[in-house]
Structures are given as structure tokens and as C-alpha cells.
Nucleic acid binder design. Structure first.
Lengths: 214, 214
DNA sequence: CAGCATCCGCTTTGATACTG
DNA sequence: CAGTATCAAAGCGGATGCTG
């Protein structure tokens, strides 16, 4: 990207991460950890392969990303965030939060990946009853399952199966997210094809309320 | 901008504010409040006028910016952030913080505006002695003067003159910022042409230390 | 197959000129 | 002051081909 040539911290940041696709590449590495080129491409549907290569080079030059040639048995290149790259998490988090209200409308051809949803959920859900025992909830939004772990006031959401879920939600991504983000009631979500299995009270424990002041 | 067509909150955010210049327009409105078209152009050196018009239209459609035709005596159009637009401040703040380390190198043809520097300073400086009486520091980085107001642990930095400054700093923007951000010692800043007037202790009270975890 | 580089048509941006 | 109009240059998207 052409530099803005402004002596301003925001402009300097955007000189590095303001290009199309760049922050989404950082998102992939932040959500999934060290990744292969092919995994990155899979998490960025629509990116031109030469652009991904270009951006990775630029991010490497900027000290945000580093590549490591994995040892012989694996024999592949892994890209990962440097400490400086990890410091971009607050930027991603604020964008996650700002974009949550836009999740209510899912365009018909929007791609879906479970790890994106997990990232969004970690930014919104809160444990309203920290005293309660730890529980897990499993989501099956068509893609891979997502497990939400609630324990001692902390929320962790990641791709994977729950061992002993207190509840499971199966259905389309949009109504599932609408329900969890607090934009949809359980009845409305069920009418939209969501199958809820478990104790409805667990929903009340974690549902995102009105947007949090950040 | 073409949509990323991803059902991800970050991608949805970037669909709205990921275009070139867009976040800088929001920065201008956030730092300066309601502004005229011409003021925006002045705060965005290098932007093509058709692009500014385009972006403002898109931001209006997205509900981030609104325009008001000021009443007859003023007879001009003012652009301002909507509440939804104000919610982008955490995004700007995180970009301000991330970009601070990049402020140490000022490219020879970087444009400088005092309100950008004020924004950066508010993100870094902290009042390390909240018990002390309120003081003001004035900066004269060539452009317009900046006043830093320190009182009760809070820092405010804005364009304008101080009434009774406890210290003044005159010189080039880069060494002044380097000194305040904690990247440069007073002697080094003075060697770089900064003229410091006042009690050096006030510097210790507010200087930014190592980057804060956000 | 993983990790690119090249080519080409299309879209976006930059610079400048012009207008109510 | 607050834009619109025009056009060249740069960037992007999609397809394809190459190399270990």
C-alpha cells in the first residue's frame, strides 16, 4: 500500500495493516495459531493466491509475521504472529465488537468458518453467574462444532467437541448467533430451525446483552 | 469496497471501514468534532476530492456519519459522527496505540497536524502523580500549539494554547514526541533542537513508559 | 500437494480541471 | 465552499502454470 505520509499513529498503523486482506490474515493467525499457507487460504475464501503471498511477505518485512520451516518430519512452512503481531489483538478485538451488530444479517453467499464464530463469541459472551460450576455448550453450525467453556466468570470458545455439554445448539449459523448474541429469543431461533437440547437456563448465564462499552 | 462475503464480525467491520482513507476520515471527525468538507480535506492531505465525497456518502449510508446543513447564519454543511460512528473510537484507540512505536521514524515528507499528535498523546501519557495539583504543558511543534492538561490522574491533550503552562516544548515534532513517548532522553531531545522551558520534573509526571497492555 | 509466479481484464485510486 | 468530471496509473481477482 502506498503510505499515507502522515505523521500520525493511526496512519502509520494503516500503512502496515490497512491493505485489503491484511487484517484478515492477522485474524486467521490470531484465531488459529501457526498455520500453513494452504490453511490460510482456506480461511480466506476469495483471496487471490498471489495476494496472499504478497501480503505475507509485507507482513514479514514489517515484523508482524514470521515463517518457520518446520523440522523434517512435518516438512512444511508455518506462518505465525511475532510478539509485535500479537499486539494487534486489541485491534482485532475492537473490530470484532464493532462488527457484532452486523452479524444479524447474513448475506446468502457469505462464507462461514467455525473459528470466526468462536472469535466473535469470546468477544460478546459473559458469565453472568461466576459462582456456578463450570459447564460446556456445544454448537453445531453446519461447519465444525464449537465448544463454549464457561468457568469462573471466564468464557472460552474454540473449534472442537465438548466432552459433556450442558446444552447443544444445532442449526444455521445466523439464528444460532442471533440467539447467543441476544438478538433473537429462543422461540424465534427455534422457528428458524435451531434445535436446542439441554437446560434453557444455561443460555441466560452467558447470553450477550446490549453492546458493552469498550 | 467489495464485500469480503464472510460471516465474520471482523470482515463485516472491514466491509464498512476497511477502504483506503475511510478510517482516517473517522479519525478526523473523532478528533475534531463536526467538520466542514474543506476542514476534512485539510486534515487528510493527499486525498482526492472525489474520494472524500465518495467515502462520506458510503459512511452516511452505513450510518457512521451524518451531515447537517447548518442554519442560515453559518450556511455550510457539517459532517459529524453518529452514535454508531462514535463506537469506532475503540478501533481508533487501538490503532493509535499500535502505531505509537512507528512514530519514532518520521519520513521527511510526512505531513504533520497538531490534532493528530494530541490524539496520540492522549493514548500514551499517564499522570503518575495523581495527587499533585493540576498543571498544563504547552507544545509548539511548528504547526498549531498543543496544550496537555494534567489533573487528578487524567490527561487531556488538544489543540490550543495553555493559560499558565508549567512547561513548554518548542521544536520539531519528532524529537518532541520521542521525548514525551519515552523513546528519547531530555538531553537527546535538546540535541535534536528541542527547547525545553520549565521544571523538568513535570516530564517525569506524565511521560509514557513501555507500551501498555490494552 | 504446498507454495508460490505470471498474465490479463476489471475496478479502484490519484491528480487535475472544472462548476453551482 | 462543496463538490462533479475526466483519465491515467495502480491495485485486485481469477485463471493458469511452474517447481520442489
Amino acid at each position: 500500500m502506498r503510505s499515507y505520509e502522515e505523521y500520525c499513529a493511526v496512519a502509520k498503523s494503516l500503512d502496515v495493516v490497512g491493505d485489503r486482506w491484511t487484517l484478515l490474515i492477522v485474524r486467521e493467525l490470531a484465531l488459529r495459531g501457526p498455520s500453513r499457507y494452504t490453511d490460510l487460504r482456506n480461511g480466506l475464501p476469495g483471496i487471490a493466491t498471489n495476494l496472499l503471498a504478497d501480503r505475507l511477505r509485507e507482513l514479514e518485512r514489517a515484523g508482524v509475521v514470521a515463517r518457520e520451516d518446520a523440522p523434517p518430519p512435518i516438512a512444511t512452512t508455518l506462518f505465525h504472529l511475532t510478539p509485535r503481531g500479537e499486539e494487534l489483538r486489541p485491534v482485532l478485538d475492537s473490530l470484532f465488537r464493532w462488527g457484532l451488530p452486523l452479524m444479524s444479517e447474513q448475506q446468502p453467499n457469505d462464507a462461514v468458518r467455525s473459528h470466526w464464530l468462536a472469535g466473535a463469541l469470546e468477544q460478546t459472551l459473559t458469565d453472568h453467574s461466576p459462582g456456578q460450576p463450570p459447564i460446556e455448550i456445544e454448537l453445531r453450525p453446519g461447519d465444525q462444532p464449537i465448544v463454549i467453556q464457561i468457568s469462573d466468570g471466564a468464557i472460552r470458545a474454540s473449534v472442537g467437541a465438548a466432552s459433556d455439554p450442558a446444552a447443544t445448539l444445532t442449526g444455521e449459523p445466523r439464528p444460532i448467533m442471533g440467539l447467543l448474541l441476544g438478538l433473537l429469543e429462543l422461540e424465534a431461533a427455534q422457528a428458524a430451525g435451531v434445535h436446542f437440547d439441554g437446560d434453557p437456563k444455561v443460555l441466560e448465564r452467558i447470553r450477550g446483552g446490549p453492546p458493552v462499552a469498550a
